[in-house]
Amino acid sequence: MTPDDPAAAPSLGVRIGALTLKNPLLAASGTCGYGLEIAHLVDLSTLGGIVTKGLYLAARDGCEVPRIAETPAGLLNAIGLQGIGIRAFVESVLPRLQAHNTAVIVNVCGETIEEYAEVARLASQAPGVHALEINISCPNVKTGGIAFGTDPVMTHDVVAAVRRASRLPVIPKLSPNVTDITVFARACEEAGADAVSCVNTFLGLAIDVESRKPKLAFGTGGLSGPAIRPLAVRMTWQAARAVKIPIIGIGGIAAANDALEFLIAGATAVQVGTLNFSRPNIYAEIEAGLRDYLTRHDLKNIQALSGTLQYPR
Protein backbone atom coordinates (compact mmCIF):
# COMPACT_ATOMS: atom_id res chain seq x y z
CA MET A 1 0.00 0.00 0.00
CA THR A 2 1.20 3.50 -0.74
CA PRO A 3 0.41 6.47 1.47
CA ASP A 4 -2.11 7.59 -1.15
CA ASP A 5 -3.98 4.32 -1.09
CA PRO A 6 -7.46 5.18 0.22
CA ALA A 7 -7.56 1.81 1.98
CA ALA A 8 -4.31 2.45 3.86
CA ALA A 9 -4.57 2.53 7.64
CA PRO A 10 -4.31 6.11 8.94
CA SER A 11 -0.84 7.04 10.12
CA LEU A 12 -0.19 7.94 13.75
CA GLY A 13 3.42 8.94 13.12
CA VAL A 14 4.44 12.49 14.06
CA ARG A 15 7.55 14.65 13.77
CA ILE A 16 8.89 16.88 16.52
CA GLY A 17 11.70 18.73 14.79
CA ALA A 18 14.24 16.07 13.85
CA LEU A 19 12.54 13.54 16.12
CA THR A 20 10.18 11.07 14.50
CA LEU A 21 7.70 9.26 16.73
CA LYS A 22 5.74 6.19 15.66
CA ASN A 23 2.72 7.64 17.42
CA PRO A 24 2.00 10.84 19.37
CA LEU A 25 1.78 9.12 22.78
CA LEU A 26 4.60 9.73 25.23
CA ALA A 27 4.85 8.77 28.89
CA ALA A 28 5.42 11.94 30.92
CA SER A 29 8.43 12.62 33.09
CA GLY A 30 8.04 11.51 36.68
CA THR A 31 5.27 9.04 35.90
CA CYS A 32 7.15 6.16 34.28
CA GLY A 33 10.43 6.05 36.19
CA TYR A 34 13.21 5.51 33.69
CA GLY A 35 11.00 3.31 31.51
CA LEU A 36 12.20 -0.05 32.76
CA GLU A 37 9.94 0.14 35.83
CA ILE A 38 6.84 -0.16 33.67
CA ALA A 39 8.22 -2.39 30.92
CA HIS A 40 6.67 -5.53 32.45
CA LEU A 41 3.23 -3.91 32.37
CA VAL A 42 3.24 -2.01 29.07
CA ASP A 43 5.03 -2.85 25.84
CA LEU A 44 7.22 0.25 25.51
CA SER A 45 7.59 -0.30 21.77
CA THR A 46 3.90 0.59 21.38
CA LEU A 47 4.57 4.09 22.76
CA GLY A 48 5.88 7.03 20.80
CA GLY A 49 8.44 7.31 23.57
CA ILE A 50 9.12 7.82 27.24
CA VAL A 51 10.33 10.89 29.08
CA THR A 52 12.57 9.95 31.99
CA LYS A 53 12.26 11.08 35.56
CA GLY A 54 14.15 14.37 35.95
CA LEU A 55 17.92 13.93 36.05
CA TYR A 56 20.52 16.17 37.66
CA LEU A 57 24.25 15.54 37.62
CA ALA A 58 24.11 13.83 41.03
CA ALA A 59 21.60 11.48 42.66
CA ARG A 60 19.00 13.21 44.83
CA ASP A 61 16.93 12.09 47.81
CA GLY A 62 13.86 14.24 47.15
CA CYS A 63 11.34 15.50 49.70
CA GLU A 64 10.20 14.02 52.98
CA VAL A 65 6.91 12.08 53.13
CA PRO A 66 4.00 12.57 52.77
CA ARG A 67 4.78 13.35 49.17
CA ILE A 68 1.41 12.76 47.52
CA ALA A 69 -2.22 13.56 48.26
CA GLU A 70 -5.21 12.73 46.13
CA THR A 71 -7.57 15.62 45.37
CA PRO A 72 -10.77 15.61 43.29
CA ALA A 73 -9.79 14.14 39.88
CA GLY A 74 -6.25 15.17 40.70
CA LEU A 75 -3.01 14.33 42.39
CA LEU A 76 -0.97 16.82 44.38
CA ASN A 77 2.67 15.83 44.65
CA ALA A 78 5.92 17.08 46.04
CA ILE A 79 8.41 14.33 45.29
CA GLY A 80 11.30 16.76 44.92
CA LEU A 81 12.99 15.12 41.93
CA GLN A 82 14.40 12.10 43.71
CA GLY A 83 16.61 10.49 41.11
CA ILE A 84 19.70 8.50 40.27
CA GLY A 85 21.60 11.22 38.39
CA ILE A 86 22.51 11.37 34.70
CA ARG A 87 25.66 9.24 34.94
CA ALA A 88 23.93 6.30 36.62
CA PHE A 89 21.14 6.59 34.07
CA VAL A 90 23.54 6.50 31.14
CA GLU A 91 25.60 3.66 32.58
CA SER A 92 23.03 1.32 34.09
CA VAL A 93 19.60 2.13 32.62
CA LEU A 94 20.10 3.32 29.06
CA PRO A 95 21.74 0.15 27.69
CA ARG A 96 18.79 -1.93 28.90
CA LEU A 97 16.25 0.63 27.69
CA GLN A 98 17.54 0.54 24.12
CA ALA A 99 16.23 -2.98 23.63
CA HIS A 100 12.67 -1.70 24.06
CA ASN A 101 12.54 0.12 20.73
CA THR A 102 10.97 3.37 21.89
CA ALA A 103 12.11 7.00 21.74
CA VAL A 104 13.97 7.98 24.92
CA ILE A 105 13.65 11.61 25.97
CA VAL A 106 15.83 12.61 28.91
CA ASN A 107 14.33 15.16 31.30
CA VAL A 108 17.22 17.51 32.07
CA CYS A 109 17.37 19.29 35.45
CA GLY A 110 19.83 21.65 37.07
CA GLU A 111 20.27 24.04 39.95
CA THR A 112 22.34 26.30 37.71
CA ILE A 113 22.49 26.97 33.99
CA GLU A 114 25.89 25.27 33.94
CA GLU A 115 24.42 22.12 35.48
CA TYR A 116 21.61 22.00 32.90
CA ALA A 117 24.19 22.29 30.12
CA GLU A 118 26.40 19.59 31.60
CA VAL A 119 23.51 17.13 32.09
CA ALA A 120 22.44 17.88 28.50
CA ARG A 121 25.99 17.27 27.24
CA LEU A 122 26.29 13.93 29.05
CA ALA A 123 22.86 12.79 27.86
CA SER A 124 23.63 13.81 24.27
CA GLN A 125 26.87 11.86 24.19
CA ALA A 126 25.14 8.64 25.22
CA PRO A 127 23.85 6.34 22.49
CA GLY A 128 20.10 5.85 22.54
CA VAL A 129 18.92 9.25 23.77
CA HIS A 130 16.59 10.78 21.17
CA ALA A 131 15.75 14.18 22.63
CA LEU A 132 16.06 16.36 25.71
CA GLU A 133 13.19 17.80 27.70
CA ILE A 134 14.32 20.70 29.88
CA ASN A 135 12.72 20.81 33.30
CA ILE A 136 12.29 24.50 34.04
CA SER A 137 9.01 24.02 35.81
CA CYS A 138 9.29 21.69 38.81
CA PRO A 139 7.50 23.45 41.69
CA ASN A 140 8.91 21.13 44.36
CA VAL A 141 12.60 22.03 44.61
CA LYS A 142 14.08 24.92 46.53
CA THR A 143 16.72 25.84 43.95
CA GLY A 144 16.22 26.05 40.18
CA GLY A 145 13.16 24.31 38.78
CA ILE A 146 10.23 26.67 38.53
CA ALA A 147 12.49 29.72 39.08
CA PHE A 148 13.83 29.20 35.55
CA GLY A 149 10.39 28.65 34.11
CA THR A 150 8.64 31.71 35.51
CA ASP A 151 11.14 34.34 34.32
CA PRO A 152 11.30 34.68 30.53
CA VAL A 153 14.92 35.87 30.54
CA MET A 154 16.05 32.91 32.62
CA THR A 155 13.96 30.59 30.45
CA HIS A 156 15.70 31.94 27.38
CA ASP A 157 19.15 31.60 28.94
CA VAL A 158 18.76 28.02 30.14
CA VAL A 159 17.26 26.88 26.83
CA ALA A 160 20.05 28.63 24.89
CA ALA A 161 22.68 26.97 27.09
CA VAL A 162 21.19 23.51 26.55
CA ARG A 163 20.87 24.29 22.84
CA ARG A 164 24.59 25.00 22.70
CA ALA A 165 25.43 21.83 24.64
CA SER A 166 23.46 19.41 22.46
CA ARG A 167 22.57 18.54 18.90
CA LEU A 168 19.50 16.59 20.00
CA PRO A 169 16.02 18.07 19.78
CA VAL A 170 15.56 20.38 22.78
CA ILE A 171 12.09 20.55 24.37
CA PRO A 172 11.61 22.89 27.36
CA LYS A 173 8.72 21.89 29.63
CA LEU A 174 6.71 25.00 30.38
CA SER A 175 5.33 25.94 33.76
CA PRO A 176 1.62 26.82 33.84
CA ASN A 177 2.25 29.02 36.88
CA VAL A 178 2.61 32.17 34.79
CA THR A 179 0.20 34.88 33.66
CA ASP A 180 0.89 34.54 29.94
CA ILE A 181 2.34 31.28 28.70
CA THR A 182 2.89 32.65 25.19
CA VAL A 183 5.71 34.85 26.51
CA PHE A 184 7.54 31.72 27.67
CA ALA A 185 6.79 29.70 24.55
CA ARG A 186 8.27 32.54 22.47
CA ALA A 187 11.32 32.80 24.72
CA CYS A 188 11.94 29.09 24.15
CA GLU A 189 11.50 29.39 20.40
CA GLU A 190 13.87 32.35 20.23
CA ALA A 191 16.46 30.44 22.27
CA GLY A 192 16.47 27.63 19.72
CA ALA A 193 14.04 25.11 21.18
CA ASP A 194 12.68 22.48 18.78
CA ALA A 195 9.37 22.15 20.61
CA VAL A 196 7.79 22.88 24.00
CA SER A 197 6.03 20.56 26.44
CA CYS A 198 2.88 22.18 27.74
CA VAL A 199 2.42 21.98 30.74
CA ASN A 200 3.98 20.90 34.02
CA THR A 201 1.94 20.80 37.25
CA PHE A 202 -0.03 23.66 38.76
CA LEU A 203 1.15 24.91 42.13
CA GLY A 204 -1.37 23.80 44.72
CA LEU A 205 -1.92 23.43 48.45
CA ALA A 206 -3.99 20.82 50.29
CA ILE A 207 -4.56 21.18 54.03
CA ASP A 208 -5.29 18.66 56.77
CA VAL A 209 -7.86 20.62 58.75
CA GLU A 210 -7.38 18.60 61.95
CA SER A 211 -3.67 19.34 62.26
CA ARG A 212 -3.92 22.60 60.26
CA LYS A 213 -0.82 21.52 58.39
CA PRO A 214 -0.30 21.02 54.66
CA LYS A 215 -1.04 17.46 53.57
CA LEU A 216 2.41 17.33 51.95
CA ALA A 217 5.64 17.51 53.95
CA PHE A 218 7.08 20.05 51.50
CA GLY A 219 4.05 22.31 51.94
CA THR A 220 2.81 23.20 48.48
CA GLY A 221 2.83 20.69 45.65
CA GLY A 222 2.16 20.30 41.94
CA LEU A 223 -1.36 19.44 40.83
CA SER A 224 -1.84 17.02 37.94
CA GLY A 225 -4.55 14.74 36.60
CA PRO A 226 -7.89 15.29 34.84
CA ALA A 227 -8.62 18.23 37.20
CA ILE A 228 -6.14 20.39 35.25
CA ARG A 229 -7.05 19.24 31.74
CA PRO A 230 -9.13 22.24 30.57
CA LEU A 231 -6.42 24.59 31.88
CA ALA A 232 -3.72 22.68 30.04
CA VAL A 233 -5.74 22.47 26.81
CA ARG A 234 -6.30 26.24 26.95
CA MET A 235 -2.57 26.87 27.46
CA THR A 236 -1.68 24.45 24.65
CA TRP A 237 -4.05 26.35 22.36
CA GLN A 238 -2.52 29.70 23.37
CA ALA A 239 1.06 28.49 22.97
CA ALA A 240 0.36 26.84 19.62
CA ARG A 241 -0.89 30.12 18.19
CA ALA A 242 2.14 32.01 19.51
CA VAL A 243 4.98 29.90 18.11
CA LYS A 244 5.83 27.88 15.01
CA ILE A 245 7.61 25.05 16.84
CA PRO A 246 5.55 21.95 17.76
CA ILE A 247 3.75 21.68 21.09
CA ILE A 248 3.57 18.52 23.19
CA GLY A 249 0.33 18.70 25.17
CA ILE A 250 0.19 17.40 28.74
CA GLY A 251 -2.51 17.50 31.39
CA GLY A 252 -4.74 14.76 32.76
CA ILE A 253 -5.06 12.66 29.62
CA ALA A 254 -7.10 9.58 30.54
CA ALA A 255 -8.69 8.57 27.23
CA ALA A 256 -8.38 8.99 23.45
CA ASN A 257 -10.75 11.97 23.43
CA ASP A 258 -8.56 13.76 25.96
CA ALA A 259 -5.53 13.32 23.72
CA LEU A 260 -7.60 14.50 20.75
CA GLU A 261 -8.51 17.71 22.59
CA PHE A 262 -4.83 18.61 22.92
CA LEU A 263 -4.12 17.72 19.28
CA ILE A 264 -7.05 19.75 17.99
CA ALA A 265 -5.96 22.64 20.22
CA GLY A 266 -2.63 22.66 18.42
CA ALA A 267 -0.41 19.96 19.94
CA THR A 268 1.60 17.64 17.69
CA ALA A 269 2.07 14.97 20.36
CA VAL A 270 0.87 14.41 23.91
CA GLN A 271 2.14 12.99 27.16
CA VAL A 272 0.18 10.77 29.50
CA GLY A 273 1.18 11.50 33.08
CA THR A 274 -0.79 10.84 36.24
CA LEU A 275 -2.84 8.09 34.62
CA ASN A 276 0.31 5.98 34.35
CA PHE A 277 0.01 5.48 38.09
CA SER A 278 -3.46 3.95 37.99
CA ARG A 279 -3.65 2.64 34.41
CA PRO A 280 -0.15 1.63 33.29
CA ASN A 281 -1.51 -0.10 30.20
CA ILE A 282 -3.77 2.73 29.05
CA TYR A 283 -1.80 3.37 25.84
CA ALA A 284 -3.37 0.57 23.79
CA GLU A 285 -6.82 1.94 24.57
CA ILE A 286 -5.84 5.52 23.62
CA GLU A 287 -4.08 4.42 20.45
CA ALA A 288 -7.11 2.39 19.33
CA GLY A 289 -9.31 5.40 20.00
CA LEU A 290 -7.07 7.67 17.92
CA ARG A 291 -7.12 5.23 15.00
CA ASP A 292 -10.86 4.94 15.21
CA TYR A 293 -11.20 8.74 15.20
CA LEU A 294 -8.98 9.15 12.13
CA THR A 295 -10.97 6.52 10.28
CA ARG A 296 -14.32 8.05 11.25
CA HIS A 297 -13.16 11.52 10.20
CA ASP A 298 -11.48 10.26 7.05
CA LEU A 299 -8.07 11.64 8.02
CA LYS A 300 -4.97 10.00 6.52
CA ASN A 301 -2.63 11.02 9.29
CA ILE A 302 -2.83 12.42 12.77
CA GLN A 303 -0.62 15.40 11.99
CA ALA A 304 -3.44 16.76 9.83
CA LEU A 305 -5.52 17.13 12.98
CA SER A 306 -3.14 19.41 14.82
CA GLY A 307 -4.50 22.92 15.35
CA THR A 308 -7.83 22.33 13.61
CA LEU A 309 -9.90 23.83 16.40
CA GLN A 310 -13.00 25.58 15.11
CA TYR A 311 -12.94 28.40 17.60
CA PRO A 312 -15.82 30.91 17.58
CA ARG A 313 -14.80 34.22 16.08
Binding site: G33, D61, V65, P66, R67, I79, N276, F277
Partner: peptide, 26 residues
Protein backbone atom coordinates in the same frame (compact mmCIF):
# COMPACT_ATOMS: atom_id res chain seq x y z
CA UNK B 1 0.77 6.46 51.42
CA UNK B 2 1.13 4.65 48.12
CA UNK B 3 0.26 6.08 44.70
CA UNK B 4 1.12 3.50 42.06
CA UNK B 5 2.50 0.31 43.64
CA UNK B 6 5.09 -0.11 40.88
CA UNK B 7 7.91 2.24 41.86
CA UNK B 8 7.16 5.12 39.51
CA UNK B 9 5.44 7.79 41.62
CA UNK B 10 7.98 7.61 44.48
CA UNK B 11 5.22 8.68 46.86
CA UNK B 12 5.71 5.82 49.34
CA UNK B 13 9.40 6.11 50.12
CA UNK B 14 10.77 5.02 53.49
CA UNK B 15 14.23 5.71 54.89
CA UNK B 16 16.32 2.55 54.74
CA UNK B 17 19.89 2.17 55.92
CA UNK B 18 21.60 -0.55 53.93
CA UNK B 19 24.75 -2.01 55.54
CA UNK B 20 27.15 -0.97 52.76
CA UNK B 21 25.84 2.58 52.35
CA UNK B 22 27.08 5.65 54.16
CA UNK B 23 23.64 7.08 54.92
CA UNK B 24 19.98 6.12 54.73
CA UNK B 25 18.24 6.37 51.35
CA UNK B 26 14.63 6.92 50.34
Amino acid sequence: WMGCGIGTCLGCVVKIQEPGEGRPRN
